Computed example of a mutant assay.
Amino acid sequence: MSILKLIRWKNLLLIALTQVLIKYALLEPFASTTTLSNFEFFLLVLSSVCLAAAGNIINDIHDIEIDRINKPEKVIVGKAISEKTAYNLFFALNIIGVCIGFYLAMAINKGPFFSIFAIISILLYIYSSFLKQMLLVGNLVVSVLVAFTILLVGLFELLPAITKMNQSTQFTFFKILFDYSVFAFMINFLREIVKDIEDVDGDYKEGIQSLPIVLGRERATKIAFLLSFIPLAAIVYYTVTYLYHQQLAAGYFLMFLIAPMIYVSIKLFNAETKKQFHHISMVLKLVMLFGILSLLLYKFILPH
């Protein structure tokens, strides 16, 4: 159970769910051609989950002192699991994730794609080691990596199968995936800032240059409030532009994405306590989940 908590199994489940829905709710029913077999796709999801789990572990190892201040009840490394065991898990998961990536790159005759998995692995380590201590850099890196879990499916499923005949269709679906990745980036970036405000005490003692430490908690909260309007405006624009004639989809976006984002903006306007920021962070996580689940709506939107 401690290992599941250490690897953040709920976050890993969200990554797996995202990639599975992309293939089986969007690409398989509607895209003209996909590349990976079911087994190869399972390996792609497994690789993504292994690398993300390794990233979560190394993050916890480097955050032991910070977590003792911010969330002492959730400290795992050094308590339930030894630091040596955590490091061994980190290396094992990285090796599995990168080796699977190498196999998949060879399987689709795109050898250079192997470097994607190696770069993700290295970036997650560098993020935990020192990037997270730099103003906004860590927030941006982790948000880009979250967004990339969506694009990764497109790179392996759509790109190798492009021909002159299906080029237009493949790029249309790649654009849909790009839109979802931008959504994931915006929501995650906002959530990263909210979490920084929530964890300001421990971060300050460890010398991390987060936004609330550099500018102050109050100013950082105002910036987060203003930033919350960007994904809100983007979702409203997407709904009005593409879904206005699809009542079911428009209703879903209104109820499960637009309304919660308005709620987040209102809460950010006067949030002050650690508990309030944690609540906002959880709502943003739900927005991310509902955004991903909207992939199930494409069977009602797109012609078969």
Rank of each mutant, 00 (worst) to 15 (best):
R8E: 09
S32I: 03
F156V: 10
P231R: 04
F300D: 13
I126R: 08
H62W: 09
F225M: 09
I162C: 05
L159A: 14
I64W: 10
S82T: 15
K71A: 14
K79S: 13
L17D: 06
V75P: 06
K5C: 07
A86F: 04
L243A: 12
D203Q: 05
I64F: 10
I292M: 02
Y125I: 09
F189K: 14
S210L: 06
A184I: 04
K71Y: 11
S37W: 00
L104F: 04
N270P: 00
R217P: 01
K71P: 05
Y237H: 06
V194W: 06
Q246G: 00
S294M: 03
T172L: 11
I69F: 02
I15M: 01
I116L: 11
I58D: 01
G101P: 06
S265Y: 12
T149A: 03
L6C: 10
K74W: 11
F41V: 01
F102D: 00
E272S: 13
S47N: 01
L135M: 12
L123I: 08
K10I: 10
V98M: 01
Y127H: 11
D67V: 08
A118F: 10
V182I: 15
E83L: 13
L123D: 07
D60F: 03
L21A: 13
Q133E: 10
L243E: 11
L159D: 03
C99V: 13
L155C: 07
R68L: 12
I176V: 14
Y204F: 12
A107M: 11
N109R: 11
G202P: 11
Y127P: 07
N109T: 04
A147S: 14
L248I: 15
I122Y: 08
M282Y: 01
R8M: 04
F41M: 09
F91H: 11
A107Q: 13
V20D: 07
A54D: 04
I230S: 02
L152W: 00
I7R: 06
P260A: 12
L4M: 14
Y103N: 02
V20E: 13
I193Q: 12
T85F: 11
V236E: 04
V75D: 04
V20H: 12
L93W: 04
